[in-house]
Nucleic acid binder design. Structure first.
Lengths: 361, 361
DNA sequence: TTGTAAGCGTTATCAT
DNA sequence: ATGATAACGCTTACAA
C-alpha cells in the first residue's frame, strides 16, 4: 500500500459514501435540443450563443435568445462539466467559518469570484489536518477548477495528489519569502516580531504567550517564532518563554490566562496569537479583578472588530483580510485560466497600538 | 415578457457569463471503464460496488476495490450528476458570512451535511434581494439537490421558480406559526416581545430602536413588530417609537446611537435589533462618555460571543444557532431524500439579562 | 450476481 | 456562420 495508503484509500468512498436514494422522477426541463428546435438551429449554434462572443450572426443569436427565454432554459451543470471539463467552481478550505478573520476574507473572496463568473465551494476543517485532506479530495472530485488553502503546512502527499490532478492551488493567510508555493498573504513571523519589539519597547521583559495549537498550523508557529526571535535578538532566553498552547476559542483563552496568572511569577504582558484568545484573556482578567494594562498587558493578532470593542481596546496586528481575499480570488482565477504558475503576493500587516498594552518600568 | 421577465431573463446568462477559456489539456484520469477492465468486470458492476450496498458478491467487490485503489480512481462528478440527476450538493444562501450568527449556524449546517455525505455550496447576498434571486438561479443550475434560505420574505416569482424546478427549499432563522413554508427557526417577534416586556419591567418607558434595514428582512421587521406589540399592550403609543433603520454593521450602530442621544429627549433604553448594532451602540456610548446602564440601557439580539465581551455585558436574546444549523441540515436532507413535504421546527430562544440593561425609576 | 447498452445534456471537432 | 456528430464518464433498466 505504500506511503499513500491512508490518503488514497478512500479517495473514492468520500463522494459515494451513501447509497443513491430513489429520487422520485424530478421532472425534466428544457434542454439545448429543445431550444435548438424552437429556434430552428442546431444545438451547436445554441451552445455557441451561450458561450462564445463572436461566431454567431446577430439575427440567429436574437432568435436563439428568444427561444431560451420563452422556454425558461437553464443549462445543465453536470452535462456542461462533463463536456467542457470545466466547472467554473473554486473550492476553498478553511479551518473554521466561526472566526471572523476567515469569514471576512472569504466573503471578499467569494464576491470577487462571483464577479468573474465563478462559484465558491467552501468547507471547513475545524483545524484538523485529516479533515482537510478529505475535503480536498471531495472538492477535487467535484471538479473544482482551483483550490484555495490556508497556510503552507500539510502532508506532502496532499501536494503530490494535487499536482497529479493538475489542480491549481493557491495558499492564503501566509507568505514565506522563498517558498516556491504560490501564496497570497503576509509575513506572520515578521508581523509578530514587530509587535514583540513594541512590547519590549514598553518596558516588558516578563512575557507569556497564549498560542493556538501549533501542529499543522504554520501561522501560529510562525507567530510564536517571531516572538522568540526578538527575545533572542534582545539577549533574552527564548526557551524560558512560557507558552500555553490551546485551541482558538474564547473560553480557552480565558482558561489559559487564568493558568498564567496563577503561576508564581506572573508575566507583565500576555501575548496572544490571535484576537479571539486575547478576548478570552481580557474577559478572564476582568473576572479575576486584574487590571489591564495596569497589572498586566494583553496583545492580540488579526485586528478583528472585537479588538476595538473590548475594554480596554486591544493592541494587535492589523491584517488586510478583505484585500487578501479579493486578491487571492483574482490570482487563483488567473492561474486557472492561463494554466499559469501562480504568483505570490505579500501583503503588509500593521501594528495597532491600543490601550491594552501599557508601559512598564 | 410578463411578470417573470426580470427574473427569467438572464436565467441562462448567469452561469455562462464569460467565454469558456482554453484550458490546456488537463490530463485525463482513470475512469470507470479503466477500473472495470482492471478488475475484469463490467462498468455496471463497478458502479454498483461504489453506490449500492448489497447487490455485489464479496469476492467481486474485493477485486473491484483493489482496482480502484491501485488506479487511484476518483469518480467524475459531472458525469455522475448527469447520469444520476443527483449531485449530493446542498446550497445555502445567507445575507453575509461576516455576522457570527450565520457563520456559526452555517458551520453546524455544513458539519451535519458532511456527515450525511452532502457537500455545501454557500453564497451570500449582502442583504440584497436581487443578488439572492441570482444566487438561487445559479445554485439551481448547478444542480443543488436542496436549498437553504434565510427568512420568509422574497419575491413570489422566486418561489414559483423553485417550485417549477422541484427543488426542495427549507427556510431558516425564522419560524412563523401558520406559515405553510417549511422552516427551522424561532419566533423572532415573540422573542423580541419577551425582551421588551423585560425592558418595561425594568421601569423604562422611553425606548428607542436601532433596526436593520427592514425591506426584504422579515427577521428584522418581526423583531420590530414584537417591540411595537408590547408597547401597545401596555398602553404606550407604538407609533411614537423612535426607530433608526440602518445596515447591520458596528459603525452604523455607533452612528445611530449618536443620533439618538443627540435628540432633545433622550431615550432611557436603546433596543437594538441585533448584537452587532448593539456593540456599535456600546462603543459609541463609551466614546461619548455616556454611562451604560446608568444613563442609558442597551439591549441586543442573538447572543453572539461579542455580547459577553463588551463592558457591561449585553442583555440580549439567545438563539440556538448551532442547533438550528444542524437541525436544518437533517430536515433538508430528509426532504431531498424522501421527496417529502418538509416539516417546520420551532426552536426556543431565551432571554439573557445582563448588566447593559439597568433599572429605571 | 453480473453484463449489455441506452441514455443523460453539453461541448467541440470537422465539415459544409 | 452553421450543422452533424462524436465524445465526455456515469447510472440504470433490462437481459442473461
Amino acid at each position: 500500500m505504500g506511503v499513500h495508503s491512508v490518503f488514497v484509500k478512500d479517495a473514492v468512498r468520500i463522494p459515494t459514501r451513501r447509497a443513491i436514494v430513489d429520487l422520485p422522477d424530478r421532472q425534466s426541463f428544457p434542454t439545448l435540443t429543445d431550444v435548438a428546435r424552437a429556434a430552428g438551429v442546431s444545438t451547436a449554434t445554441v451552445s455557441r450563443c451561450l458561450n462564445t462572443s463572436g461566431k454567431v450572426s446577430g439575427a440567429t443569436r436574437e432568435r436563439v435568445m428568444r427561444a431560451v427565454e420563452t422556454l425558461g432554459y437553464t443549462p445543465n451543470f453536470g452535462a456542461r462539466a462533463l463536456a467542457a471539463k470545466r466547472t467554473f467552481t473554486i473550492g476553498a478550505i478553511i479551518p473554521t467559518m466561526e472566526n471572523a478573520i476567515f469569514a471576512r476574507g472569504l466573503q471578499a473572496f467569494q464576491e470577487t469570484l462571483h464577479d468573474k463568473g465563478y462559484t465558491l465551494l467552501v468547507s471547513s476543517t475545524a483545524y484538523r489536518p485529516d479533515r482537510e485532506a478529505e475535503q480536498i479530495r471531495t472538492l477535487v472530485a467535484r471538479g473544482a477548477d482551483g483550490l484555495l488553502l490556508i497556510g503552507y503546512e500539510r502532508d506532502p502527499e496532499i501536494y503530490d495528489f494535487l499536482r497529479s490532478r493538475r489542480v491549481p492551488v493557491l495558499l492564503a493567510w501566509a507568505h514565506q519569502t522563498g517558498n516556491p508555493h504560490p501564496a497570497v498573504g503576509f509575513d506572520n513571523r515578521g508581523a509578530m516580531a514587530a509587535l514583540t519589539r513594541a512590547v519590549l519597547a514598553h518596558g516588558h521583559t516578563a512575557i507569556a504567550v497564549i498560542s493556538g495549537i501549533l501542529r499543522g498550523n504554520d501561522r501560529a508557529s510562525e507567530r510564536l517564532a517571531g516572538i522568540r526571535g526578538v527575545l533572542q535578538e534582545n539577549g533574552l532566553d527564548p526557551h524560558a518563554l512560557p507558552v500555553i498552547e490551546t485551541a482558538y476559542d474564547i473560553d480557552n483563552g480565558a482558561r489559559a490566562f487564568a493558568t498564567l496568572m496563577q503561576a508564581c511569577d506572573r508575566p507583565t504582558v500576555v501575548m496572544c496569537v490571535n484576537d479571539v484568545l486575547a478576548a478570552g484573556a481580557m474577559q478572564q482578567a476582568r473576572a479575576m479583578g486584574i487590571a489591564v494594562p495596569e497589572e498586566v498587558s494583553i496583545t492580540g493578532f488579526d485586528d478583528i472588530e472585537l479588538a476595538r470593542l473590548v475594554t480596554p481596546q486591544l493592541t494587535t496586528v492589523h491584517v488586510p483580510h478583505r484585500q487578501m481575499g479579493s486578491l487571492a480570488a483574482r490570482e487563483l482565477v488567473r492561474m486557472v485560466e492561463t494554466k499559469g504558475e501562480g504568483v505570490s503576493h505579500e501583503l503588509q500587516s500593521a501594528l495597532r497600538l491600543r490601550a491594552s498594552l501599557g508601559r512598564r518600568g
